[in-house]
Design a protein around this nucleic acid. Structure first.
Lengths: 191, 191
DNA sequence: GCTGCTTCTTATCATTTGGTAAGTGGTTTT
DNA sequence: AAAACCACTTACCAAATGATAAGAAGCAGC
């Protein structure tokens, strides 16, 4: 189980060339956070001040709607996340972010991010590209909702991200798929 | 019916302070394009080389799936669009972009965009923020698919963007809503 | 090891949406 | 004008999903 900073470094170096100075700047700008299961990293209405690198664990994005929790996203370890609308546009967040496993994260404050972006070309490139990548992921989810049934979407997850089915409680997964827990339970029985 | 360049300028100035030099740079970097109804601006498999400002008209993003056209997005006049995955990550596009009304557009080539971004702080800020804004729109669509029925989504469009119902052919709108034209027809009858 | 709480499952019936087919109306082609 | 399309509608039945209720299984606190 490697160190969180090594994880971040490896993530970046797999995609970009980093000078020692750049990495040093990045390293000192990220703060390590360890949280217990069910800890909130952001609540609705708050301003999201951090960009997170999730080194270990699992977080979900959810909101309250019609008296129910609706899980909008799930992010697994070795990836980045933030609440974009709040972080980039400085608006109050409309979702909660919660770690649903004990998690290890690195986070960078918005004020420090500006400096890193200005002083590290590699980071600047990375920041640009990961946003496009997240947009692609979101569009893929949207596309699947437009043209596939819940059962088909579930089977795709089962095949492509079996980890998700094992680690995410059914009620969250059902909500992520846009169906009730009962419906997902039925789908699982049919398979 | 104002000039396309004036439209672009007004769009930007409503949100950002532009110096004369900045606007001049932007103006000469954008090329005007007028297209007939049903003209393709991008086809699947191609690389998207342009960022577009739609001054007048209506375009749709769609892909072929199961032998059918699936409309993924609709963009109306006085807004920007591109195929992000292709334009920003330099991958072949997985969607077609088609003007479904006679349209007037301004477009900027990727090579020129870099220069504008470097030389205009206002543009740089704008480029940053509009991507976040598009992400928010995409997430809102996704959220609606997760927690609302097709009928509810249709009624929201009818209320908030009645223009869309008037101008978009029913079969495209149905596909955008993730249902068949027959289902949308039934929903309209019920209302 | 109990107790109580939450999650998950199962069953039944209602609602929503899909698939198919046929029909209407408008537009284009010839 | 006739013919051939195309978009949209309507109707009927099938499939998918929701709502409700009840029970089973897993888990936390005592």
């Amino acid at each position: 189980m490697r160190n969180a900073y090594n994880g971040l470094k490896a993530f970046l170096e797999e995609r970009y060339k980093l000078t020692n100075a750049e990495w040093e700047l990045i390293r000192v700008s990220f703060e390590k956070v360890e949280v217990a299961k069910n800890t909130f990293l952001l609540e609705e209405g708050q301003h999201c001040e951090y960009l997170y690198y999730l080194h270990e664990g699992l977080v979900r994005f959810f909101r309250w709607e019609d008296g129910e929790e609706k899980t909008q996203y799930l992010t697994f370890e070795d990836y980045f996340f933030t609440q974009q609308e709040s972080f980039f546009l400085r608006r109050p967040s409309n979702v909660n972010i919660q770690a649903i496993e004990p998690s290890v994260l690195l986070r960078i404050h918005e004020r420090d991010l500006t400096r890193v972006r200005q002083q590290s070309p590699a980071w600047s490139q990375f920041a640009f590209e990961i946003r496009a990548e997240v947009q692609v992921v979101t569009e893929t989810l949207l596309r699947d909702f437009q043209s596939r049934t819940a059962k088909e979407r579930y089977l795709t997850i089962l095949e492509q991200q079996p980890e998700m089915v094992r680690r995410v409680p059914l009620k969250y997964l059902a909500s992520f798929l846009g169906i009730t827990p009962e419906s997902l339970s039925r789908i699982r029985k049919e398979v």
